[in-house]
């Protein structure tokens, strides 16, 4: 363990970077929820954000695709394809097509399973029936839901179980073929079996997508992620490979958190 307060891994040029924050600060009114986070999100990897409740990891995640607009004030830069997403010129709607998000509680629309997926596609101008069908099937297959719902695509999505509904939400997000998928504690409302299915889905998805996942479940972070960032009181105290973070943490705070000595 080093004597410093923080350890943030920087990638060399061999690893492609999907997203990078520079001096990202997030305020709720006066309260500083995130202070100066510098984080590189590697492409085609799963990056887990862990930390105690209130450490700011969800706030950080939601800022990455500007879902905090109007809720919190976000300062600093979020670099994506040489563009600063946190600037005025960015069309947030077009940007969110590239950076999708799945929430803590499954939130399918009160529409049919099919319409849940085509909703966003149609909004973005895809109206060809054949292409829609294709996209729906591909997305459902990628989300490992196809076999369970292929015969009831026109049934209400509200009839799905929690785990199925969450996989539908993932399918809905990846049907847009985004670059990056942000997941905010996607398994916290699911039972262990559904969680296992979801984790398997995510591991398969990482071949094509960059995934950032907030989780309270440390074993889950250890199981599925390649890199782990530990948030504590609004600061990224450690960011490193998942194995390193969990087995040889460089920062005392992280050691306490991952070994359960916390609080």
């Amino acid at each position: 363990m080093t004597t410093g307060n923080c350890y943030i891994l920087k990638f060399d040029s061999k690893q492609e970077i999907a997203l990078e924050t520079k001096q990202l600060k997030i305020f709720y009114d006066e309260y500083e929820a995130i202070s100066a986070a510098d984080l590189q999100i590697p492409r085609f990897k799963i990056t887990a954000l862990i930390g105690a409740s209130g450490s700011g990891k969800s706030t950080f995640l939601r800022s990455l695709n500007r879902m905090n607009d109007g809720i919190a004030s976000v300062q600093g830069q979020i670099w994506y394809r040489d563009l600063d997403l946190n600037s005025r010129e960015i069309d947030v709607y077009a940007m969110r097509r590239q950076i999708g998000m799945v929430f803590q509680r499954p939130n399918p629309f009160p529409k049919s399973i099919y319409e849940n997926i085509t909703f966003a596609l149609e909004r973005h101008g895809i109206t060809d029936k054949k292409e829609l069908d294709e996209r729906v099937e591909t997305a459902l297959r990628q989300a490992a839901l196809w076999d369970e719902v292929k015969d009831k695509l026109n049934k209400s999505a509200l009839a799905l179980s929690g785990g199925q509904a969450q996989r539908l939400c993932i399918a809905r997000a990846i049907a847009l073929k985004p670059d990056i998928l942000l997941l905010d504690e996607p398994a916290s409302a699911l039972d262990p079996i559904s969680t296992a299915q979801l984790e398997e889905t995510l591991i398969n998805l990482k071949q094509q997508y960059t995934i950032v996942i907030v989780t309270h479940n440390l074993p889950q972070a250890a199981r599925i992620s390649d890199y782990t960032a530990h948030f504590s009181q609004g600061v990224v105290v450690e960011f490193n490979g998942t194995t390193e973070t969990f087995t040889q943490p460089k920062i005392a705070l992280t050691n306490e958190y991952v070994s359960g000595d916390f609080g």
């Binding site: 695709n65 929430f103 909004r123």
Partner: peptide
């Protein structure tokens, strides 16, 4: 959560209001 879901999929506010909020 319906509104967030819609916005997170890149739908505009108007699309969200018209297609999700008013529909529901």
């Amino acid at each position: 959560s319906f509104r967030y879901a819609s916005l997170a999929l890149g739908a505009t506010r108007w699309q969200t209001i018209y297609k999700v909020v008013l529909r529901s």
